[in-house]
Design a protein around this nucleic acid. Structure first.
Lengths: 261, 261
DNA sequence: CGCTTCGTTGACGTCTATCAATTCATGTGG
DNA sequence: CCACATGAATTGATAGACGTCAACGAAGCG
């Protein structure tokens, strides 16, 4: 599976380069990471709470989610991960998880040993900062979801999730935001939106009735992006896709963060 | 205000040392950071959305919150920061904020230039990793809040916030979890719990009626910690206070891990 | 003393949950 | 090709949690 591993690493590198400027040497170092590719059936956990891992999982296919489980079995998804995302890169610095990571649909992950990632961090400080920056984006997404769940109604919540996934899919080169694969059942979507499956169903019908989008068999067709954005109050700034990539460099006068095109 | 600056830096260092092992030299490097101490009146923003900052704010007094604002003015707090917390350490790698940071009560912050923090990261890779680890804890808190808001009722949400703040206060040496200052009004608490002020009021009465705690004038008195934990389904694992501090040791070279309390 | 902020209460409305079927799509085996 | 099982989507009826609106009381403060 050499080639799909490389494809996944390239996707990961592309993701990093959106926000972090890396030298060719640093890029090469990332591309030379290795790990075992492992198919994961839908609904199977990749990481379980309390588990201490020594690898980070790079999503190479499918859709993966991080979630919390309540005592009565209810789940709350806190974030989705698409191909090119390293769904627990942070485990490099915090190897013990207190949450679950699961494959939403049939997926594949590449498990990259922490040892390799740590070596990269120590050899290339800019890579360490790029990883930290990547984690900051994840945190920003979590924070935005807090706002969605705390302050928005069912329609806006679901609309926001669709907006986010469309935007991220497009940024990752996985299809246009107007028409993309989002392989979740309505029940799984209820775990992300903090609603019940029944209410998700009704809300989707409602959204469809408004002519915003259709969602069927894991495929999203957005009919009216602007209206969807408006309903969701979606502002993509939190995804940090727009600014030029950062790099911390040594200049004559010291260290500066610069924008690199 | 030399002394209070130093006190804040010591608190920050203590926070880092809970989860990251640092050598004495690294510790010294952190303690020699400098910045301007600045009082912030209650309800005044420290960082605004869209702003690009060149300092990170270390909370030295009071209570600070990160929040998102909806178009209709509703707010959702995503996290609280107490003295010793660096409320936007991540701005070192992502200087442009898409959220607000505000003083909840009368507070003070020390603004530490990114330039100094970046120098530390490049000179001491372990500090970069410690900062990343710190950000990972923040992200873990966000994620937990997603679960609270998405899947818990009013009583559990408020109970969970109290449990978290009590645990963090105690860990930071700011008072026992059974009795601590939490200087928020019921209205501000509604911004954190995703409820209305009226419902917060009723829920607090309900919680008090259950004999779990009293909350008045910014002071929390927990009457029955275990019951509170049970109502909240609070599991402190996500705060990452329990495991021994981590250190990444370069393979071959023998840097020993230092455990300092 | 009057102003302002905060906490409190009551009545009522609505959004979402709950419970229980039913339909629909897909796949499997006889 | 049909019978059957399974998971997903859909629908209806009802209940409950929380929101909304409006008012009032308490406490701090110039």
């Amino acid at each position: 599976m050499e080639t799909s591993q490389n494809a996944a690493l390239s996707a990961f590198l592309r993701r990093l380069l959106i926000r972090s400027a890396l030298t060719l040497e640093e890029q090469q170092a990332i591309l030379s990471l290795t790990g075992e590719r492992e198919p994961v059936p839908a609904r199977i956990d990749v990481v379980s709470p309390g588990e201490t891992v020594d690898t980070s999982c790079l999503v190479s296919k499918g859709l993966v989610a991080r979630y919390d489980q309540m005592l009565d079995g209810q789940r709350q998804v806190t974030s989705y991960y698409i191909p090119g995302d390293m769904c627990d890169l942070h485990s490099v610095v915090v190897p013990k998880a207190s949450w679950s990571i699961t494959a939403v649909s049939q997926s594949s992950v590449v498990r990259i040993p922490h040892r390799q990632l740590r070596t990269l961090c120590l050899d290339y400080p800019s890579i360490a900062l790029a990883f930290w920056r990547d984690g900051t984006v994840d945190a920003s997404i979590f924070a935005k979801w807090v706002g969605n769940l705390g302050r928005k109604n069912a329609k806006a919540r679901i609309a926001h999730i669709i907006c986010e996934m469309g935007t991220r899919m497009e940024a990752a080169g996985l299809g246009p935001r107007m028409s993309f694969e989002f392989n979740v059942t309505q029940e799984q979507l209820s775990d992300a939106s903090g609603l019940t499956p029944v209410h998700v169903n009704r809300t989707l019908q409602d959204i469809r009735g408004d002519g915003l989008l259709t969602f069927s068999k894991g495929h999203v067709e957005v009919k009216n992006w602007d209206a969807l954005v408006s309903v969701a109050e979606f502002d993509p700034a939190y995804l940090m896709l727009a600014s030029p990539p950062h790099r911390v460099v040594a200049t004559g006068r010291g260290l500066e963060a610069v924008h690199v095109r």
